[in-house]
Design a protein around this nucleic acid. Structure first.
Lengths: 353, 353
DNA sequence: CCTTGTTGCGCAATCGATGGTGCTTAGGCT
DNA sequence: AGCCTAAGCACCATCGATTGCGCAACAAGG
């Protein structure tokens, strides 16, 4: 055992030398194509043993260079610091690894330029496929990937140039809003003019669908949605904080209920209330599109929509595993509405030692 | 514009053809080594222009195969779904990209086997370096990386075979404990026998250092640390939940103060209290080693230690950027103690559109 | 005019794995 | 014995970028 490491990877040539055979035979044995090459079982066994002894690991660069497929799969996503996207990244990696693929996740902060740059970088490494999660311009990304023959697939936000797996945002928002209204009615509070929608980008599909669900639930409850109460001010915590602050300032009163479009935005809302109106945390009815374990205990009345990440990723990998001609359909997965009182419905966290 | 994509990457040979020159000249121009190869400025400019026009992007597989360095940098970490590790992953990616490196993060759930398998997979792709964040066996990983000449660096949990950047866990824990004691004294509560330490693995460096800080702060406050109150039961939420439940069951009373060793564990604590003793959320003094924005508002009295991720990663990249002979020193970065009342000290979140 | 030096660039080997092609040898059949 | 088939492998080109080496052209100096 030398103190200076061997520095050298073992190659099929090294194994061929030791086995007294040729590199192509070794290669065939080690990559599984040996049956079609009529290599004898005995020789194959010898080679496998030597490879094991020498600690052989294939050089994926060389393999990818030659065979074009790299066995890498990329994913871009807006951020990690959020339970929804964090869970997506974790599960994506597990599933990819289970298929012998090297997962490459990268967070691009909802910045279109960074998304494109990252995708280009991944293409340079010849990834076999790219998953665009919550991308601002999925079709633009699909175009440049297509030019290199790399398929894409959209998650969370849909595109028209590749298959998309998204939550059923309309239904989730409708149910969430309806649940808030039910509770408001139950406690006899007057919500009709003081029901806010906060956060998200009016231009993105998810937000517009959620607004639609929000509006219809209100209409179906016999009220009129108030347009000034719909504040799709962006996702950032600072923006929802500012929007809520301005709203309360201008109307001079607290909202009765709030539909908050993401936990990031909820963070801003709680931050402002926590600083200036802590009591309101116990009186306002909150609905959060996305779930966070701690948010559950912060407000007295919080309903959450938890997007069904496992089902979404299962649907996605079902497409990935199937044969190539994939049409650009949009698959909607229904999310789960959780109220604080029924939080026992929340799926258990993966166990950890 | 053909409907069927070109499927073909542009290579230096394509550019050489168009420029009427050789591939080696093109290669040299495009990778920056052209000055030493005495290529004329004029020709270089022509080549750069053609490359631009044709949308050339180097094939990193080929480059890596030839030059051994892949310009990829790997990182393993326990999980994404946690603000601390999420922030680490995000910042790691930004910094890596800023250096022209392809970041490859992968979460390994604190499972030693998965850690090793992932590292081996990364080595197959010839990553230039591996960052081991919160690894259960950093030295084991360092050993197999060393055998391939790939340097490692440890983050969050230290090792002895590579440089390590960790929080000053002792000081953070001491200060957190002291702050809790101060508050307890201020409100006149009797904490001496009901101060719990919950979560973490007794075997890991961080936990043992935090326990040391916890003990010493209690001793310095004139009390005797109670060994049965130190429950390093693992990080998982379910485990801290069970431990707290059992403790309350056996003693028949609620703790006065709790030092919770990670937000994951805090989740279990809040979950149990939220379900069975919601009032206690407002009376118990909580100290959390790690910060979460929502946790801030959940309990009336919560002090958090926020580990200084930016400084830690700066320190790490300072090592990465410097010349190779790196000794296996341990760099400690002091974390920040935040109380609910002073949460304005919390660094603002990165802005997002 | 010849030598020496410098500038500018092309040739070809190389990295490791893959896969098409083709060469031996053994065995079966007539 | 002669012919044919199939089994079992080895040879070699190839993927795209990098790099040591060397050659041509031209300038400068003697």
């Amino acid at each position: 055992m030398p103190t200076t490491a061997s520095k050298k990877q073992i190659t099929i040539y090294d194994i061929a030398d030791r086995a007294g055979t040729s590199a192509s035979t070794v290669g065939a044995v080690l990559n599984g194509s040996w049956r079609n090459r009529r290599i004898s079982e005995k020789r194959a066994e010898t080679i496998r043993q030597i490879a094991e002894e020498m600690g052989y690991a294939p050089n994926m660069q060389a393999r990818a260079l030659r065979s074009v497929r790299s066995r890498m799969i990329g994913m871009i996503l807006p951020m990690y610091e959020n339970r929804y996207f964090g869970a997506i990244a974790e599960r994506f990696e597990m599933e990819a690894r289970a298929r012998g693929l090297l997962p490459m996740t990268s967070c691009t902060r909802r910045e279109p330029d960074l998304e494109l740059a990252t995708v280009r970088q991944m293409l340079s490494y010849n990834v076999d496929r790219i998953v665009c999660t919550g991308a601002t311009d999925p079709d633009g990304i699909a175009r440049i990937c297509d030019a290199q023959g790399v398929p894409t697939i959209n998650l969370d936000l849909p595109g028209t140039a590749a298959p998309s797996i998204i939550s059923d945002n309309y239904t989730g928002a409708y149910k969430l809003t309806a649940a808030l209204i039910d509770r408001a009615n139950a406690v006899g509070s007057n919500w009709q003019n003081d029901f806010l929608f906060v956060g998200g980008r009016p231009t993105d599909h998810n937000t517009s669908e959620r607004i639609r669900g929000f509006r219809e639930a209100i209409t179906d409850a016999g009220a009129l949605p108030t347009e000034e109460n719909i504040m799709a001010c962006g996702y950032a915590a600072a923006k929802s904080k500012a929007a809520l602050s301005a709203k309360v300032e201008s109307t001079g009163r607290m909202p009765t209920a709030m539909f908050v479009n993401s936990t990031v935005s909820l963070e801003g809302v709680f931050d402002w209330l926590g600083q200036h109106h802590r009591k309101a945390l116990d009186t306002i009815l909150f609905g959060s599109f996305d779930w966070d374990p701690f948010a559950q205990y912060t407000a007295q009345n919080l309903f959450s929509v938890r997007q069904d990440v496992p089902s979404m990723l299962d649907a996605m990998f079902r497409i990935i595993d199937s044969e190539p001609p994939h049409e650009a359909e949009v698959i909607q997965v229904e999310p789960i509405v959780i109220s604080y009182r029924t939080r026992e419905h929340a799926p258990a966290r993966a166990t950890e030692r």
